[in-house]
């Protein structure tokens, strides 16, 4: 069997896999699609718990416990802490996804889109999810540092806030533009 023959079957296999993946739709995905409110709500939900998560990740607690409690309690504390961080990481991923959904929706409903921006977002998304999985595996294996996750949550929350502000600003601009257009139309009608 020649290499080109194997490559050909490999290509067919990739196509079949691609089609299967594209047609496969998890329940959660379809539920999110059906509920337009999820776009607005989910992006704020987890960021709201940021102070509590920061408290849970505080190194002071860890130092205090290492002095006052037994090894068993410390182990339990670490285990619980890891569980919380994993849950938070997963929630951040949800936040990230909802922001992405918003970006895709904007692209979808735009009369013109730039291939460069779309490609850039696709590339960044792939990178983010790859890194997210790396951190998750490291956390599960007990190798990842916890406190630096704060930076990640800050970024997500700031992105969310900026987008909301930008959308508000655009809404105002659109209203002004509409007003201008209608006044111009009126002028046009008057001159006739």
């Amino acid at each position: 069997m020649s290499l080109s023959f194997i490559l050909f079957f490999g290509f067919i296999a990739v196509l079949l896999f691609g089609l299967g993946w594209a047609l496969w739709m998890p329940r959660l995905r379809s539920e999110l699609r059906r509920d337009p409110r999820s776009l607005e709500e989910s992006s704020r939900r987890h960021v709201a718990y940021l102070p509590q998560i920061r408290q849970a990740l505080s190194e002071v607690d860890h130092v205090f416990l290492s002095k006052k409690t037994s090894r068993e309690v410390q182990l339990r504390f670490r285990k619980e802490r890891r569980r919380v961080v994993l849950a938070y990481l997963s929630a951040l991923r949800g936040d990230f996804q909802s922001l992405l959904r918003m970006a895709r929706l904007i692209a979808l409903l735009s009369p013109e889109v730039a291939a460069v921006h779309e490609y850039e977002r696709l590339r960044l998304t792939a990178k983010f999810f790859w890194r997210y999985q790396m951190i998750r595996w490291k956390l599960l294996a007990g190798l990842a540092p916890v406190p630096q996750l704060d930076g990640l949550s800050d970024l997500v929350s700031s992105l969310s806030v900026r987008m909301e502000a930008a959308i508000k600003e655009l809404g105002e601009r659109a209203a002004i533009a509409a007003e201008l257009a209608s006044s111009l139309n009126r002028r046009g009608l008057d001159s006739i």
């Binding site: 904007i106 889109v113 921006h117 850039e120 540092p145 630096q148 900026r162």
Partner: peptide, 27 residues
């Protein structure tokens, strides 16, 4: 909006890179 979103996604990725480098006590 799109360039702004992409810029933020870029910074987010940079932060993830930093997270991957262990500097503090491990779990």
């Amino acid at each position: 909006l799109t360039p702004q979103i992409n810029l933020r996604l870029h910074s987010l990725n940079d932060q993830l890179c930093k997270i991957l480098k262990p500097e503090v006590p491990r779990l």
